[in-house]
Amino acid sequence: MNPTAAAIRAGITRGRIELRQTFTNFQDLWGYLFPTVALLVVMTLMRGSTIPGTEFSRGTMTLPSVLGVSVAFGSLINLAQILTIEREDGTLLRAKAVPGGMLGYLVGKIVMISGTVLVNVAIVLIPGAFLFDGLDLGDAGAWLTLLWVLVLGLVATMPIGAIIGSLFPNARNLGAVMLPIMGLVAISGIFYPITGFPAWLQWIAQVFPIYWLGLGMRSALLPDGMQAVEIGESWRYWETAGVLGVWAVIGLVVAPMVLRRMARRESGSSVAARREKALQRIA
C-alpha cells in the first residue's frame, strides 16, 4: 500500500479509537454535557423574553447562535488544548518516531475533533428542538445550510486551534487566549442581536469566525423573518461563506508551517524538560 494512504488510514482509525475513548470516559463526558445542560437551562429561562421589536423568543434565537459558538469552541479550543497537552506528555514525539506518524496523528485529530463537535451540536440541537418553538427544522434547505456552515466552520477554526496549540508552551498558558475568545463571544451577537451594539464593536466581531458561525446557524434554523434583526437585515450567505473561507485558506496555509516548526523541535529531552517542570509544579 502507498505509505501516505496507509498513514491517512491509520489516522482515521486513530480518530475513531480516540472518539470511543473520549465517549466512554466519565470525565470527558461530563466536560461535554455540563456546558450543554447549563446553556439549555439559560436558554430555557430566556424563553419568556422576546427580541426587541419582534414577537420572537430570545431562547429560540439563542439556540442556533450557541450552536455556532460550540463549533468554534469545540474545534478551536479543544484542538489547541489537546495539542499543548499531547506535546507536553510526549504523544507527539511518539508520532514523530513512527513513519507517517505525524500525518496519521493530524488526521486522527481532525476525525476526533469533528466527531466531538458533531456530537456537541447534536446534544444541543436535539433537546432544543423539543424545548423551543419556531425552529425551522422541517426543511431540507435548513439542514443543507447547517451542514455547509458546520463543515466550513470546522475548516476555518481547526487550523487556528492548531496554530494556537503549537505556539503555546503548555496547556496552563492557554487561559490567556480563553479571555479574548470569551470577549469575542460576548460581542458576536450570540445572546443578544449584534445590531444592538455600537458600530465599531460590530466591525470587530465581523472580522472573526465566531460571529459568522452564529449567523450561519441562525440563517439555517430561524425563519426568514428573523433577518430583520441582523446587520443589513439579511442572512448574508455569501459574506458568511467568504469570511469563513478566507479564515480557512489562511489557516490551511499557515497551520502546516507552524505545526512543522513545532514538531521539528520535539525531542526526548524537550519532553523530559517539560515533565520535570510539571512535576516541580506538583511538588
Binding site: 475513548q21 506528555d89 510526549g90 514525539l93 511518539r94 526526548g268 519532553v271 523530559a272
Partner: peptide, 14 residues
C-alpha cells in the same frame, strides 16, 4: 529505526 522513548503519561487511555 526504532526509538524507545522515556514515557510519561502519553496514550494513557489506550
Amino acid at each position: 529505526i526504532g526509538v524507545v522513548l522515556q514515557s510519561w503519561r502519553d496514550h494513557s487511555k489506550w
